[in-house]
Amino acid sequence: MLTATVVLLAGCSVLGGGAQPLKVVTIGLDSPLSGDLAEAGLSIKNSAELAVARANEKRLVPGVRFELDPRDDAGDPARAKANAAAFAANQAMLGVVGPYSSSVALEMTPVLAEAGLAQVSPSNTLPALTWGPDYRGAGKNRPYGTYFRTVTTDAIQGPYLADFLRQTVQVPNAAVISDTKAYGKSLADEFAGQFEYAGGKVLLRKNVEPGTTDFTALVQQIKSAKAQLVYYGGESPEAGRLAAQLAAAGVRIPVAGGDAIHNEEYVHLAGAAAAEGTLATSAGIAIDNLASAYAYVDAYKAAGYAVPHGPYGPYAYDSAWALMLAVGDVVAKNDGALPDRDLRKAVTTALQDVSFFGVTGEVSFDRYGDNYNQSISLYKIENGKWATLVSSGRWAGH
Rank of each mutant, 00 (worst) to 15 (best):
G358I: 11
A51I: 04
D69A: 14
D179M: 10
N373F: 13
R166T: 04
K226M: 01
G271D: 13
I44K: 00
A128Y: 01
P159V: 05
L33R: 14
Q221T: 03
N83I: 14
F195R: 04
L8P: 00
T278S: 13
F164C: 00
L117D: 10
D370I: 03
A51F: 09
N141W: 02
A19H: 14
C12A: 15
E67L: 08
S292P: 05
R79N: 12
G63Q: 05
R394F: 12
P159Q: 08
Y183E: 00
A174P: 04
L129W: 01
P21S: 10
Y100S: 06
L246N: 11
L106N: 00
E196K: 12
D366Y: 12
W395S: 13
P99E: 04
S34P: 01
A19R: 12
P32V: 05
Q245A: 12
K345D: 15
Q220W: 02
L290V: 13
I376S: 00
G240A: 07
S102F: 05
V297S: 12
L323D: 07
P133D: 05
G358H: 10
F195S: 01
A53S: 12
G361K: 01
S13T: 14
D179C: 06
L290T: 12
T216N: 13
K206Q: 15
D36E: 15
K181M: 12
V347L: 11
A174S: 12
G158N: 02
P122T: 00
F148S: 02
K301C: 06
C12P: 00
L15W: 12
S375N: 14
K185Q: 13
V359M: 07
A217Q: 11
Q221Y: 03
K140L: 09
D335V: 08
N141D: 13
K385G: 15
N56Q: 06
L94I: 03
L112P: 09
A332Q: 14
R54N: 12
G397M: 04
P21D: 13
A286Q: 04
S101N: 12
A188P: 09
P62Y: 09
K223P: 06
D72G: 06
V330C: 07
F357M: 13
